[in-house]
Simulated assay, not measured.
Amino acid sequence: MAILNYTSISHTVFILVGIPGLEDQHLWISIPFLISYLTAIIGNSLLIYIIVTERTLHEPMYLFLSMLAAADIVFSTTAVPKSLSIFWFKAGEISLGGCITQLFFIHATYVTESGLLLVMAFDRYIAICYPLRYSMILTNLVTGNIGLAVLLRSIIIIFPIIFLLTRLTFCRSNILPHTCCEHFGLAKCACGDIRANIWYGVFVLSTTIALDLILIAISYGLLLRAVFHIPSRNARQKALNTCGSHVCVIALFYVPGIFTILTQRFGHHIPPHVHILLANMCALAPPMLNPIIYGVKTKQIRDRLVHVLFPRQK
């Protein structure tokens, strides 16, 4: 009888409320969302175009960067337009299938970006520690296969979340206090046992994001050790400069996420809307700032961008 009752009230439509407690400020909050989204789409599209059309940039470092830019576009497009529809039109309704699809792409893209940052750290390690063998180790075929492996890892490890969610019966509130769907937020609406969801979420976090960060730290530790053994000061400076933009992107990707996790774990006195705003800032900032960071710090990209935007008159 209990199963029948659960089935009869199971929700198939959910309501995303945006930023709970700040509903009257949604129109103003939408402005930075829109600016960050347009900046991310335009900036990353330009970055991909420059890398694809400039033959001198057909190197592993820039090919991985173009993959990161494509992931940023997918991530932003999956999350932000729905948020804007909530802010502007109060269109927070989303089907169960639509919610699961959205969270799948958000989580898979996030894991993909983490994997690409790890691969880019490995690329810098090879370029600085084994410069003479760099082109032999990271051929275009190997670069493509690595990118494919990063994508497949993300899909394979996030895909089980679909089955973990579809097995649940959603008989509690269908109100989701967020701007987009995410795994734990949706699982909390279920009336059944969600321990499998919780433990699998911990498994995903520890075997992807946390492991990638540890491997990046190890890679840069070995890299820095090699750099500081270079006798020439100018050569050391040049080697460190090649890593500058990547280190900025790594910090932008991981530090806000770690801060958000800590505030959610220990900041129980912090209002819920602050947690959601922090989570959105972590999601919006990297796609918007990544192309700017690489455009400013990478001379080849900067020069090509100037040529694209301000072509010389014949």
Score class of each variant (00 low, 15 high):
A40V: 02
N140G: 08
H26C: 14
A187F: 11
A190P: 04
A251P: 09
L240D: 09
I161C: 11
A71I: 01
I157T: 05
I41F: 09
I230D: 13
L309N: 04
A2T: 10
A127L: 14
R225I: 08
N5A: 04
L223A: 08
Y294K: 09
V247Q: 01
Y37I: 03
D303W: 00
L186N: 02
L176H: 06
S173E: 01
F266M: 00
L4R: 13
L96M: 08
Q237T: 14
I35M: 08
I3V: 04
T112F: 02
V255I: 15
I50A: 07
L168F: 04
I218Q: 05
H58E: 01
D72G: 15
W28T: 09
I29G: 02
M61R: 15
L84S: 01
K90E: 11
T12F: 01
A149Q: 07
F105P: 01
L65R: 09
L277G: 11
I161N: 08
G201M: 02
P131D: 10
A210N: 10
L305I: 13
P311T: 01
P286S: 08
T53V: 10
V306R: 05
I161M: 14
Y254C: 13
A196T: 08
S206F: 06
F228N: 15
A190T: 06
S232N: 14
Y130I: 05
I128E: 13
P60G: 06
L16A: 08
R233Q: 06
I51G: 05
G221A: 06
T208G: 01
H275L: 04
Q264V: 07
N241K: 15
T139W: 14
V255R: 04
G201V: 03
H307Y: 10
C189E: 02
V142T: 04
M281Q: 12
L141Y: 02
L57A: 10
L47A: 05
V296E: 07
I41M: 15
I106R: 00
V247E: 11
Q313C: 06
W28M: 08
T260C: 13
Y49C: 00
A196V: 05
I276M: 15
K90D: 14
F310R: 09
F89R: 13
I42L: 03
S83E: 06
T166P: 03
A127R: 09
G18K: 03
R124S: 04
I293H: 11
L277K: 03
Y62E: 10
T78H: 00
Y6F: 15
A91D: 11
N145S: 15
N5Q: 03
V227P: 08
L277F: 12
K299P: 09
A127T: 04
L84Q: 09
A149G: 04
G144F: 12
N5R: 12
W28V: 12
L186E: 00
C248P: 04
P271N: 08
V150H: 10
L141R: 13
D193L: 02
F228K: 10
Y62R: 08
Y110F: 13
C171W: 03
R133A: 14
V74C: 12
L152K: 05
L224P: 09
K297S: 12
D303V: 10
F163V: 12
R312P: 00
L222A: 13
F170L: 00
I293D: 07
L289N: 01
C129W: 11
